[in-house]
Design a protein around this nucleic acid. Structure first.
Length: 595
RNA sequence: GGUCUCGUAGCUCAGCUGGAUAGAGCAACUGCCUUCUAAGCAGUAGGUCUUUGGUUCGAAUCCAAACGGGAUCACCA
């Protein structure tokens, strides 16, 4: 497609020169896709030349069209509507374009750009929820898309395993735990930790309430509530390495990791390296010392350390507390350096919700101010929050959608839907279970990834469960359909090598459309990488599936008598399946052969 | 209040490096399964692209302002 487009652009450039002595480099020729309502594939707009040429737009279009039709073999026909010249590509050309797809080879580039993608990065005090799913799917998919574009990608997970919030669930467990374990309770470890985190909050609120009744100021009550003081005390003990506290911390985190592992496995995301904040939270302090020495940071009278980012359009920012302890940004400065030391990356992507836009801007600005060579490569892949029909998700108000529960519900829906349709007789129980999970994850991932990452989105449970229309299962279904075709073709001994159909001269319009889409795939993958947008891949997969389904219903494959046409259709189907499979893989979605 | 961001069909979203009559899906209605999987296909209906002004041959798209949502401006992470 890219080659074809280039050829047409060159032809238009040549025609402009020959007919009107207009010099327009082929790269400057802007060809746009022809609207569906008109015949043609490429459209050239002639409006811009009416003034300089003193001719009407139709006149220019007709002259160009006629010239191209007679002189360029690829152009079979043309039509002119106002200032739009629509060029129709010949069927032979499409057959050729399709044939070329079989000798595609990926160009080996010498030096591969190193990219670190940090995503997921959960807190170890509660299980994953819907918001995390968007993060996980995005991070995984962007990493895969970049790999597909030849980058050397490392997936990294920075686990937030320490801090006051972790102590909260630990304190509550000490008070109420009574030796409970995930095994005894029969629930996943991350959910068990989450249970105590919630319990903490409940007691905390009760205590504040009582204190306020006793006439204590609410702000003071919040600080002095006994259970909060216990949590703070525990944090100090943790930092001192108190053995009992450390043991409890290791135990509970261990439960949580087991739970996360299970969830990660189910949803199909993975990581090349884990970082733990418990191991990195002190790193930033050296950084602060360096900044002070450089005179970029400054100390306030109370001993706290700040950086002035007013020149950068930001504000003053604290980087170290008066008591010498780290804040959030301190750690991030340290880990940025650590990641660079570990990987010498060209680009470091942070998949983080847009509520942290300011924070990430500050982080990058500080690193730039410090003259860090890797600062320029820092990129915040900022994504919008996921809303529910009932409004915002708030963990404290219990309005979050739990990831494990959601997946389980989707699997159940997939099972029901599949049973109703009754098309998978002959699959083993294990295969059936795998299919349900494949469909459930296909629906869920596609639902979350089809929207532009930057945009805030609404998660409507009823819609996400839909398996029709613009959904993951629709695309998966198209693949399964083609798999059936390929099985039958194999049975009938139909092979689909290029030489079997290369002399074909006639195509159905749906076939040409599918070929055009297939040929544009590399362009789409590149665009998705440039924009860090899996949604671009999703849209493509949907368009391709839709175009194929139209072909499928309008053209019969095995009724075809002409052996070249038959071979072409089988080959076309196989290629579509291949592209669908590949595109979906970039989204982290598997495709079944039967469903 | 400052900064950033979003506003497209009843709902969820595409389209945004300016181009034709603004597209999908869901929901509603109508057709198409004696078999290559109907989780599909075709069609009907549904729009002041928030508003106003500007740039121009041409604006959903670019610029400005207004209105309306959201985020952020912590010695929380």
């Amino acid at each position: 497609m890219i080659a074809l487009e280039k050829k047409i652009a060159e032809a238009v450039s040549g025609a402009l020169q020959t007919l009107f002595s207009v010099s327009l480099a082929a790269e400057e020729v802007n060809l746009q896709p022809t609207r569906k309502d008109f015949a043609g594939t490429f459209t050239f707009v002639t409006f811009p030349y009416t003034k300089t040429l003193g001719k009407g737009p139709e006149q220019i279009g007709n002259a160009l069209g006629e010239y191209l039709k007679t002189n360029v073999p690829e152009v079979a026909d043309y039509n002119v509507v106002k200032g739009f010249l629509n060029l129709v590509i010949s069927d032979e050309t499409w057959v050729g374009v399709f044939g070329n797809l079989f000798n595609e080879q990926t160009a080996e580039t010498g030096k591969r750009e190193k990219v670190v993608v940090e995503y997921s990065s959960p807190n170890t005090n509660k299980p994953l929820h819907l918001g995390h799913l968007r993060n996980n799917f995005l991070g995984y998919s962007v990493a895969e898309i970049l790999k597909e574009n030849g980058k050397d990608v490392v997936k990294v997970n920075l686990v937030n395993d320490r801090g006051i919030h972790i102590c909260k669930s630990m304190v509550a467990y000490q008070l109420l735990g009574n030796g409970e374990t995930p095994e005894l309770a029969g629930i996943k470890g991350d959910h068990l930790a989450g249970k105590y985190y919630v319990a903490f909050d409940k007691i905390y609120k009760e205590q504040i309430g009582e204190m306020v009744v006793q006439g204590i100021e609410p702000d003071k009550a919040k600080k002095e509530a006994p259970i909060m003081q216990q949590a703070q005390q525990m944090l100090v003990q943790w930092e001192q390495g108190d053995e009992e506290v450390m043991n409890l911390w290791r135990t509970m985190n261990g439960w949580v990791y087991a739970g996360f592992d299970e969830t990660y496995r189910t949803i199909g995301v993975d990581f090349d390296k884990f970082y733990y904040e418990s191991e990195t939270y002190l790193l930033g302090k050296d950084f602060v010392a360096e900044g002070l020495a450089q005179g970029i940071f400054f100390k306030k009278p109370d001993g706290s350390v700040w950086v002035d980012l007013k020149e950068e359009g930001l504000d003053e920012k604290l980087v170290l507390r008066a008591d010498g302890t780290s804040v959030y940004i301190t750690q991030d400065l340290g880990t940025a350096q650590l990641k660079y030391d570990d990987f010498k990356y060209d680009t470091s992507i942070y998949v983080i919700a847009d509520e942290q836009n300011y924070h990430m801007q500050v982080l990058k600005s500080i690193l730039q101010k410090m003259g860090k060579p890797y600062a320029q490569g820092i990129l915040h892949l900022s994504y919008g929050m996921v809303d529910l029909p009932s409004g915002k998700m708030k963990s404290r108000e219990g309005t979050v959608v739990d990831a494990d529960e959601l997946v389980a519900e989707m699997v159940e829906t997939a099972r029901q839907r599949t049973d109703e349709l009754g098309k998978i007789e002959g699959l083993s129980e294990l295969e059936a279970q795998q299919l349900y999970l494949t469909l459930a994850m296909g629906a869920l991932k596609y639902f979350l990834l089809k929207v532009d990452p930057k945009k805030r989105m609404l998660f409507n449970p009823e819609e996400s469960i839909n398996f029709q229309g613009n959904t993951g299962p629709f695309i998966q279904y198209t693949h399964a359909r083609i798999a059936a075709i390929m099985r039958k073709a194999a049975e009938l001994g139909i092979t689909a090598e290029v030489n079997r159909f290369e002399n074909l001269t006639n195509l159905h319009e749906t076939e040409a459309e599918v070929v055009a889409l297939l040929a544009s795939y590399p362009k789409v993958v590149a665009e998705a990488a440039n924009l860090f947008a899996p949604s671009v891949i999703g849209q493509y997969a949907y368009d391709l599936a839709k175009a194929y389904n139209r072909f499928y219903t309008e053209v019969s494959i095995f009724q075809e008598i002409n052996p070249a046409a038959l071979a072409f259709r089988v080959a076309l189907s196989g290629k579509v399946a291949e592209k669908i499979k590949n595109a979906m893989r970039l989204l982290g979605i598997n495709v079944p052969d039967r469903m």
